Amino acid sequence: MTSSSSRCPCCSGLTFEECCGPVHRGERAAATAEQLMRSRFSAFALGDADHLLRSWHRSTRPDRLELDPDVRWYRLDVLATSAGGPFDATGAVEFEAFHRPTRRGDGEPGSLRELSRFVRGDEGWQYVDGDLRG
């Protein structure tokens, strides 16, 4: 995990406690689709599969999720958002997430670019699915 004074892995510029920490712990719901997407990136960066599963819509959520310990997610660029605000029922966030191998891992640095779709219901914002981009 990260300390309360550490910068949030989602690259918002805030500390983890000011940003994604309360969402991960369930103390606060994500107010927007982008905020949920940022919390999900932070979960990948921190290895928090439980948060990823909790924030995944039941219609598309896998039964279990195994994160690759040899991949380190270190930077998130939000490229565009569509809807996904506090009064919207759906939203989309396009982002690029950058990774590199851990010290013990093989592989090359790279990135993943995705247009993610979200819905807001009784459980707050949830990730539905996404389309990989170029």
Rank of each mutant, 00 (worst) to 15 (best):
D77S: 14
D68V: 14
V71P: 00
H57T: 12
R103L: 13
G107H: 01
H99Y: 15
S39E: 10
A97W: 00
L132M: 05
Y74E: 12
A89S: 13
D88I: 09
D122C: 06
P62E: 07
D129I: 03
D70V: 11
G124F: 00
G130M: 01
E94L: 08
E123P: 05
F95C: 11
R40M: 10
A45T: 06
Q126W: 02
W56G: 11
W56H: 14
S59Y: 08
Y127R: 01
S116G: 10
P62S: 10
G130V: 01
A92P: 04
G121Y: 07
R25G: 09
H51Y: 10
M37Y: 00
R54E: 12
V78Y: 11
R117Y: 09
E18N: 04
L52C: 03
H99E: 06
E96Q: 13
E94K: 09
H51M: 06
L79P: 14
D122M: 07
G84D: 08
T102G: 00
R28A: 07
L53H: 03
H99S: 12
R61C: 15
L36M: 09
R100I: 15
G124K: 05
R54F: 08
Q126T: 10
R75S: 12
E18F: 10
F87G: 07
E18W: 03
D48M: 02
D129W: 02
T102K: 00
G134K: 09
H99N: 08
E96G: 10
T90M: 10
T32D: 14
V71D: 00
R64L: 04
E18D: 14
C19R: 04
R72V: 15
W56E: 13
A83N: 15
R103V: 14
E96S: 15
C19V: 13
G121T: 10
L76R: 05
S39M: 08
D50L: 04
H57S: 11
F98V: 11
R28L: 02
